[in-house]
């Protein structure tokens, strides 16, 4: 099997996640799609690590996971406070700054 297949899979998952961010309205689902994109990047990094024969790729994937965990905590807190003030988790409803 060609090692590039892992990269193809990662790019496919990344593209699916990006499409989800553009299509969906529910803020939670949009956030899940962002997580999917981060995971696709991690898969590519792990595959790179094996291609080059050193562990730097895995280290970067590890840092990505840590940053993703922090991001999820803050993002979900924002969604919860948005839901409290607007009674909706739709990204279309947060349009207070629109002219």
């Amino acid at each position: 099997m060609n090692p590039v297949n892992y990269l193809y899979l990662a790019s496919l998952l990344f593209a699916i996640g990006a499409t989800g961010v553009l299509i969906r309205r529910n803020a939670i689902v949009v956030f899940m799609c962002i997580e999917l994109m981060l995971n696709a990047c991690n898969l590519a990094l792990v595959a790179f690590s094996r291609m080059h024969g050193n562990l730097d790729g895995q280290i970067i994937a590890f840092f990505t996971m840590v940053v993703a965990a922090a991001e999820v905590v803050v993002g979900l807190a924002i969604i919860v406070s948005l839901f409290r003030s607007r009674h909706s988790a739709s990204v279309d409803d947060a349009s207070l700054m629109k002219l």
């Binding site: 060609n2 090692p3 590039v4 990269l7 193809y8 790019s11 496919l12 990344f14 593209a15 699916i16 990006a18 499409t19 553009l22 299509i23 094996r50 291609m51 080059h52 024969g53």
Partner: peptide, 22 residues
């Protein structure tokens, strides 16, 4: 847009000449 993005990424990776892992 998502489809175009996927095609772009796939084409970019397709140019890479990798046949085996280290």
């Amino acid at each position: 847009c998502g489809l175009g993005f996927a095609v772009l990424l796939t084409a970019g990776i397709g140019n890479a000449a990798i046949t085996e892992f280290n």
